[in-house]
């Protein structure tokens, strides 16, 4: 009974409810429309990246380079269209071209990650760790650590209007949910994550499946970057630098396993919700940045612990 509950994806949603009730009663300003708006606006880009991360975790891999993909696409996109001398400034197609360029870059970087992991067979965490370092270094060098302001209004409106962000997020999560549950790719993804040897023997193109997972992760990171860059109205080489653990953490808290094979966009959405609620209540309590950092570290650990527990119950180990 207990194990069934620990397994279900609803545990996290329930935790969200309990958390809301418990915190909302004594944190002033938690149950306000303004706070809900803020939480939602901050949560959606996180959900977008976490969706890609879910797909990668399902292959028993991990993509630690997402935050630096967000950073590098953010600065490149912003540089294209900033009115401080961007080549596309004043061009009426600036916004769509920049967004598409960012997405293409994200896909390309994801492809590179995927090749390192699936073809060169490097351990996923170290391969994506080095690309994280390289890309964030590249973003900082490229901009000489400068932020890029003065982006066109049409570009900003993609990311700072709740309506468009919501629409984009729903479209993305909906399609990934469909991809995972209703397509051959989703089926193969699970098989590769559960047991790559059995998957290969069953005729699954294992390397190709893994590469696609990282490509998808790169794409979602770039998409999130479009939203975040709009939301913050700047292209920054340190964009979201500190959110890496939130992304992996939210995914794992939701119930997607670090050991591969198990994952769902809905779980991830509830994990993102829980983490955002915690984040927002800590902010409302005006705790310092560092306390939040520590608490988040602890939350991630708990998530990993829960995942290990689930895994061991599932594998029948003691």
């Amino acid at each position: 009974m207990v194990s069934r509950f620990v397994h279900s994806g609803y545990l996290t949603l329930l935790l969200c409810g309990v958390y809301c009730l418990a915190v909302g009663t004594w944190v002033p300003g938690f149950f306000t429309l303004e706070n809900a708006h803020n939480v939602l606006l901050a949560l959606l880009p996180l959900l977008v990246v976490a969706t890609g991360q879910t797909v990668v975790l399902m292959t028993a891999g991990i993509d630690l380079s997402v935050t630096s993909i967000i950073a590098i696409t953010s600065v490149i996109g912003a540089q294209l269209i900033t009115s401080d001398g961007g080549p596309l400034a004043e061009n009426w197609l600036a916004t769509p071209i920049a967004a598409i360029a960012m997405l293409c870059l994200g896909v390309g970087l994801g492809l590179a990650n995927g090749i390192c992991v699936a073809v060169l067979k490097m351990p996923a965490f170290i391969a994506t760790l080095t690309s994280m370092m390289f890309l964030s270094g590249l973003a900082i060098w490229w901009t000489q650590s400068e932020q890029i302001y003065n982006l066109p209004r049409s570009f900003l409106s993609i990311g700072n209007q709740l309506g468009s962000v919501l629409l984009i997020t729903i479209l993305l999560t909906g399609s990934v949910h469909f991809l995972i549950n209703r397509t051959l790719f989703g089926m193969r993804l699970r098989a590769v994550g559960h047991n790559p040897l059995a998957a290969r023997t069953s005729g699954v193109p294992v390397s190709k499946t893994i590469v696609w997972a990282y490509v998808l992760s790169g794409f979602t990171a770039a998409l999130a970057s479009v939203l975040i860059t709009g939301q913050l109205e700047t292209g920054s080489p340190v964009q979201w630098e500190n959110n890496l653990l939130d992304i992996v953490g939210a995914t794992v808290i939701g119930g997607t396993s670090l050991y591969g094979g198990r994952g769902s966009v809905i779980w991830t959405a509830s994990g993102v919700l829980l983490l955002s609620l915690i984040d927002s209540s800590l902010n409302l309590l005006s705790l310092s940045h560092f306390t939040i950092m520590m608490i988040k570290g602890a939350v991630i650990l708990l998530a990993a612990l829960l995942d290990t527990l689930r895994y061991r119950v599932n594998e029948g180990n003691h």
Binding site: L245, V248, F290, T291, I292, K296, G297, A298, L301
Partner: peptide, 10 residues
Amino acid sequence: LAMLFAARGF
């Protein structure tokens, strides 16, 4: 990785 963040926060 969790320790990386927690310890630096501390």
